[in-house]
């Protein structure tokens, strides 16, 4: 499903030299898996996630999504891939503040070329599935943080992506709401949705099907107790 081969991402350090955000990471994620990526701040978790989504071009190595080698595509083709095959969920929700919940969820469908009516219908179905229909005409500022994240998940799901890539989706939520969001992700996974979730919360990570740990840009094989925020 997703194959990451010897992925390396290097940045120029501000004071000279190089920073290795990812140092030869290799990973295989099967269809229908729920994988949690854990590690300290700066360990490369988000960089790995964005690289898997075709958003961060690696210095070396490659990412394969299905049969497609992501970075063999040009920038516009990778954008098209993100529109249909990938759904991103963000820690700070990143909802467009001037759009309603319905419009936010419909946005990726519009970007993918759906008509206004088709996109709105698809968004309404997703909001219904997430129990957010009553809030469809509200703007993000009128929602609780938990509701915002549900809308963010809905936006990631509207085009029926192969994989949901969630970057610290519970990072801005209180523990109870975070549990609800992970419950939702588990439900979606139960319906067959492949999910990769970056988190620093081992308690929540433990609810995923598999945990992958990163340390200094590389896979860590130490016991999970040592990987804490």
């Amino acid at each position: 499903m997703i194959r990451v081969d010897n992925l390396t991402k290097t940045f120029a350090a501000p004071g000279g030299g190089e920073v290795h955000a990812l140092a030869g990471v290799s990973l295989w994620i099967d269809r229908g898996e729920f994988v949690a990526v854990v590690g300290r701040s700066g360990s490369g978790k988000s960089t790995l996630l964005f690289a898997m989504g075709g958003l961060a071009t690696p210095t070396a190595g490659h990412v394969q999504l299905g049969e497609t080698r992501v970075y063999d595509l040009d920038r516009e083709a990778r954008a098209a891939l993100r529109r249909t095959e990938v759904g991103f969920v963000f820690q700070t929700f990143n909802l467009v503040p001037y759009l309603t919940c319905l419009e936010n969820v419909a946005l990726p469908a519009l970007l993918a070329g759906s008509s206004r009516g088709e996109a709105t219908d698809a968004a309404a179905r997703v909001l219904e599935r997430l129990g957010m229909s009553a809030r469809s005409r509200h703007r993000p500022a009128q929602l609780s943080v938990g509701e915002r994240q549900r809308v963010g998940i809905g936006r990631a799901l509207v085009n029926g992506p192969r994989v949901l890539l969630a970057d610290e989706p519970t990072g801005n939520l209180d523990p109870a709401t975070a549990d609800q969001v992970v419950d939702l992700l588990r439900e979606l996974n139960g319906e067959g949705q492949t999910i990769v979730m970056v988190t620093h919360d081992l308690r929540l990570a433990a609810r995923a099907g598999r945990i992958v740990r990163l340390r200094s840009g590389a896979l860590d094989t130490d016991p999970p107790e040592r990987v804490t925020a």
Partner: peptide, 16 residues
């Protein structure tokens, strides 16, 4: 900045 980067993450083309 973040909103426009989010659009790119959602698959918006540079032209959009």
């Amino acid at each position: 900045r973040v909103e426009l980067a989010t659009l790119v993450a959602l698959g918006a083309s540079r032209r959009t």
